Amino acid sequence: MSELATLRTLTGMPDVPASLGKSALVMVDLQNTYTRGVMRLDEVEPAIDAAAELLGRAREAGIPVVHIMHDAGEGSPYDVKAEIGQIVDRVAPQGDEPVIVKNYPNSFVATDLDAQLKALGVEDLVLAGFMTHVCINSTARGAFSLGYRPTVVANATATRSLPGVAGEVDSSAIQAAGLAMIGDIFGIVVPDMSAIPD
């Protein structure tokens, strides 16, 4: 059997993340939604801690930070007008950091995220947030399709177990598969922020 290789490797695409100083940090759906109740994610608290450290490093570096919130309307776990839909305090926006509200998994769909990033002149993105298999995956794919170079920080993401045709699929399998799908071609996946150069 041949050794496994990503499409990135096979097509000669870069496999090393850009420096943080040349990137923008996009914090996707780090909302209270995922910290409680039916949508609570496995390993959510360590992921929020990692995202908070990454956010602190980005602020120290003075790079652009964009926050994304998902809104699914009143009464939903994604109600941005209610406390449950708000961004977790530890990673809440500060100063003039923009907040973009989206209605689709891909943060670029029906938002001005692309326009804001183009105005900043950045092509390299660092992504953190929730959920790995939905909005992180969709946003990384969307970024790639628009010509950006996304890097996903694995320990600053999390997901949940899902029902499957053959029974429950454990969150660890969903997490691993979601990250592997991104890393195959759509972006570079690093284990934690220490893998991203200054």
Rank of each mutant, 00 (worst) to 15 (best):
A177R: 12
G75E: 08
G178P: 11
L41M: 11
P98L: 04
Y78M: 11
Q86H: 14
G129M: 02
L54G: 15
L25P: 01
E3R: 13
G178N: 05
Q116G: 01
V16K: 15
P105T: 04
D89F: 11
A47L: 04
A158E: 05
T33L: 00
Q175N: 12
R40V: 13
P197H: 05
V16A: 12
I174E: 09
A18Y: 07
N106V: 06
K118G: 06
D112I: 06
D184V: 12
M193C: 07
I185T: 08
A176P: 05
A52E: 13
I87W: 04
L55K: 01
F144G: 03
L162Y: 09
D114S: 11
C135H: 07
D29K: 06
T33V: 06
P93I: 08
L117P: 07
G129H: 00
E83A: 15
G164N: 05
F186T: 06
V122P: 03
R149V: 15
D96E: 12
D192F: 02
G164F: 00
L125F: 02
A110G: 03
A166I: 13
E3T: 12
A52C: 05
C135Q: 06
L179D: 12
G12T: 12
A50P: 03
E43W: 05
E3Y: 10
L10V: 12
R160G: 07
D89V: 14
N103M: 10
T132G: 03
D42S: 10
S138C: 06
P46A: 10
M13G: 11
L25H: 00
V165I: 13
L54P: 00
L179W: 07
G187W: 01
R36E: 11
G12N: 14
P77I: 11
S172R: 11
T6R: 15
M69P: 02
P197K: 01
L120C: 02
P46L: 08
Q116L: 09
Q94L: 15
M27W: 00
A176L: 14
D114C: 09
G129N: 05
V80L: 09
P105F: 11
L127S: 04
G62P: 09
I182Y: 09
D112Q: 08
A115D: 10
F108G: 00
R160M: 14
G142A: 08
V16I: 15
L127V: 05
V109N: 08
L125G: 06
A173M: 14
S194E: 14
S2C: 09
V153F: 02
L55P: 00
G62D: 07
L179V: 10
V169E: 02
I48A: 00
I87H: 02
A176H: 13
L30H: 12
R141Y: 06
A180D: 15
D170N: 14
